[in-house]
Design a protein around this nucleic acid. Structure first.
Length: 241
DNA sequence: CCGAAGACCTGCTGGC
DNA sequence: TGCCAGCAGGTCTTCG
């Protein structure tokens, strides 16, 4: 899915398109994101929340297909289509979002270096890649962007947190911001199913340096693909130490 | 407490 | 061409 840049792209687009419309009589007052969850707020204080998991799509005025799981009809005749080929995604109506918002660690784009360092010292034995993907540790980073962030920081995905130098921690921190922001600018990464709220593919996949890449763009070394905690990890064994 | 593995689903790809 | 294993961007739960 849909990691932070993809959900944020959808959020920005939907915010433009649906704020002010009514759904079942309730007026939409905002579209927010927390971690990889999209939140649509109504004027009565209730919210609709969505998790797209691996293959979910939220498309404004999209055409229903065999993968369409739900169609939301607005008062003006426009629609929001929820598609999900693998059915892992979900949506639900909630009275308040505080509880679910508290389930996650700090937002990846909001955390500062000092807090990032403090959090890392609490997890000395963790491997850096799975830790970056742990939503309770830091919210928004998934498999693609953890690979890309670690390549940019020149840190191997299996490194234990306690072995990271100050310099490496700073590089990881800076590249979390840099890469997530760049991916948002390019409307996210479309590897297979991801489409934005306009039904368009994201453009960031062509900038991937290691995810689904054969050779390192810096040194030409064959990109290694390994399993870490059941997920694929891609890295350059020469550039990343 | 931690990490690994399996479960949840469907669709696509590559190899035989 | 047909079948089948293997693989997918994410969480959860279970187990050792």
């Amino acid at each position: 899915m849909p990691e932070l840049p993809e959900v944020e792209t959808i959020r920005r687009q939907l915010s433009q398109k649906i704020v002010g419309k009514r759904l079942n009589g309730q007026k939409i007052v905002g579209v927010r994101r927390r971690a990889k969850i999209l939140i649509i707020d109504f004027n009565d204080g209730t919210s609709l929340i969505f998790h797209l998991k691996l293959t979910g799509q939220l498309i404004f005025n999209g055409k229903p297909s065999q993968h369409t799981r739900k169609v939301f009809n607005f008062d003006d005749g426009s629609q929001l289509i929820f598609n999900d080929a693998r059915k892992f995604g979900w949506w639900k109506k909630v009275k308040e979002t505080k509880k679910i918002e508290k389930e996650f660690g700090p937002e990846a784009l909001e955390i500062d270096l000092k807090i990032f360092k403090t959090l890392l010292t609490k997890r000395p034995k963790a491997k850096i890649k799975p830790l970056l993907m742990d939503q309770k540790f830091i919210a928004g980073i998934g498999n693609i962007y953890s690979d890309e962030i670690l390549f940019a920081a020149k840190v191997a995905p299996l490194r234990l947190v306690k072995t990271l130098t100050d310099r490496e921690i700073k590089e990881i921190f800076q590249n979390i911001k840099k890469i997530l922001k760049a991916a948002i600018r390019h409307q996210g990464s479309s590897v297979e199913y991801y489409l934005d709220a306009c039904g368009e593919k994201g453009n960031y996949a062509k900038y991937h340096k290691v995810y689904h890449r054969e050779k390192c763009s810096l040194c030409g070394t064959k990109i290694k693909k390994i399993k870490i905690g059941g997920r694929s990890a891609h890295y350059c064994p020469n550039c990343q130490r």
